[in-house]
């Protein structure tokens, strides 16, 4: 039995999708670099167009590449072992994402427990406080920076709380969709998966509302509002990007469900998307606690 699995391991023939993807990443990278450089010098350039072209090429590449993989999968070229490769690959990809967020959470914790108190004179830094910014009060959230920029705190009730409930609910509906798949209940999958997508989209909508509120005259919470604004926007922003990516994954899976793909035994893409969804959910819970509540 074990031997048989190895003999069927599918090694694809040459593919042009990776090189298309490499060119796409190249366009995005030089485009984005050119764009931000010009933005700083207040010049106009081609950077933005290159980024758009690159993203278009990425979408084209993903469409073509995944079509190949889906066709190979549907025509039964894949073995149980291949399925394992995909699953392990996805798990390690999610782990790498965890570490990406860890860098930003690390920055948040460092600022809250070390650098801000030190600026206020904690530890052996009495002279830092006394000489550099004697007026500075070390509190979190850092409403007034040592440099004197003022801002306000984003409360945890209201939109963030609603968003937490939405995302937690969506994790549950995603799980129900998964259970429906295990029972081959097609209508159930469509219902629960559709609901998950709707919850994800509503979450993103509220997130945009929240940002608009933050950037309003009333709150004046900007990226440039010191370390509080920096950590707030980069953590929630990267989380939002991951929710967007997760929603796109779920939509692709949803379309495939309508096309009759997936069965209780062959559903890697479905499960990968749902793992990813649970992952963004967990990140949000940690984020909600440490960015908003505490």
């Amino acid at each position: 039995m074990a031997t048989k699995e190895y003999e069927n391991y599918y090694v694809p023939a040459q593919s042009h999708w990776p090189i298309v993807g490499a060119v796409a990443l190249f366009l995005i990278a030089i485009g984005a670099a050119n764009f931000v450089s010009n933005m700083n010098n207040e010049e106009s350039g081609v950077g933005g167009y290159l980024v758009i072209a690159g993203i278009g090429l990425v979408v084209y590449m993903l469409y073509g590449w995944f079509s190949n993989v889906i066709n190979e999968s549907m025509s039964g070229k894949y073995s149980h072992q291949m399925d394992n490769s995909f699953r392990q690959g996805m798990s390690w990809f999610i782990f790498s994402e965890v570490m990406f967020f860890a860098a930003f959470f690390g920055a948040l914790f460092y600022a809250r427990t070390l650098s801000v108190p030190w600026l206020g004179g904690a530890g052996n830094n009495e002279m830092t406080g006394a000489v550099l910014w004697p007026e500075f009060k070390a509190v979190w959230p850092l409403i007034t920076t040592p440099g004197g920029t003022e801002t306000t705190q984003m409360g945890w009730y209201g939109l963030p709380l609603i968003n937490t409930v939405l995302l937690l609910t969506s994790s549950i509906t995603a799980h129900f969709a998964h259970s429906a798949l295990a029972k081959d209940n097609r209508e159930g999958i469509k219902l629960w998966l559709g609901l998950t997508i709707v919850l994800g989209v509503v979450f993103l909508f509220f997130q945009v509302q929240e940002y608009a509120h933050g950037y309003s005259e009333e709150m004046q919470l900007y990226l440039t509002s010191g370390i509080y604004g920096s950590t707030f926007y980069l953590l929630t922003g990267f989380h939002g990007m991951h929710v967007t990516l997760g929603t796109i994954m779920l939509i692709v899976v949803f379309i495939r469900v309508w096309k009759g793909h997936f069965s209780s035994t062959n559903a890697f893409a479905f499960e990968a998307a749902s793992w990813y969804w649970h992952f963004v959910d967990v990140v949000w819970v940690i984020l909600f606690v440490f960015v908003y509540v505490i």
Binding site: A111, L119, L223, T224, G226, I227, G229, S230, T231
Partner: peptide, 12 residues
């Protein structure tokens, strides 16, 4: 304009 590594903004 973020302040991760800028002490004036509370970073380090």
């Amino acid at each position: 304009g973020t302040s991760f590594f800028d002490a004036a903004g509370g970073g380090d």
